[in-house]
């Protein structure tokens, strides 16, 4: 087990954060959850996260804007996009803007954990993904 990953989850659906926080904590992530993109951006300005997970379709500032902001602020941070409105054009746009990965809702917690593990590997601090698998059995 390496050092903990700082993860920010932003989704205007409160349940997403509420349920993903314990799910990601199991694989060694320190998770902060937000439902409002403005507050999330403020926090991102304060602190450099390892991973930002954001919904795309949100009031005021959408996920793509958050993505641009994060990429501009810290090239190191991996941004994972979630959306219920998955379409090829949005997916390509997100990737072009520097997203690390893109996942369509609905997804299983394990799907996201796999992506987080991939991101951790890319960040140079691999995590023990099997920790969650143990709980899954």
């Amino acid at each position: 087990m390496s050092e903990r990953l700082d993860v920010l989850i932003l989704d205007d659906e409160p349940i997403v954060g509420k349920r993903l926080k314990p799910a990601l904590a199991k694989i060694g992530c320190e998770v902060e959850i937000f439902v409002n993109s403005n507050e999330a951006l403020d926090r991102i300005n304060e602190k450099e996260f390892d991973i930002v997970v954001t919904d795309i379709r949100m009031e005021n500032i959408d996920g793509l804007q958050v993505l641009e902001h994060v990429v501009k602020k810290s090239g190191r941070t991996k941004v994972i996009m979630l959306t219920g409105y998955a379409m090829m054009a949005v997916a390509r746009e997100a990737m072009e803007k520097g997203a690390f990965d893109f996942i369509a809702k609905p997804f299983k917690p394990d799907d996201l954990r796999k992506i987080i593990a991939k991101a951790a590997k890319a960040l140079g601090s691999p995590i023990d993904f099997n920790a969650s698998d143990a709980g899954n059995d």
């Binding site: 998955a86 090829m88 997916a91 746009e93 990737m95 520097g98 997203a99 893109f102 369509a104 992506i115």
Partner: peptide
Amino acid sequence: RKFKPMTYS
């Protein structure tokens, strides 16, 4: 980058 594979695609 837009042609990179991702979980969704």
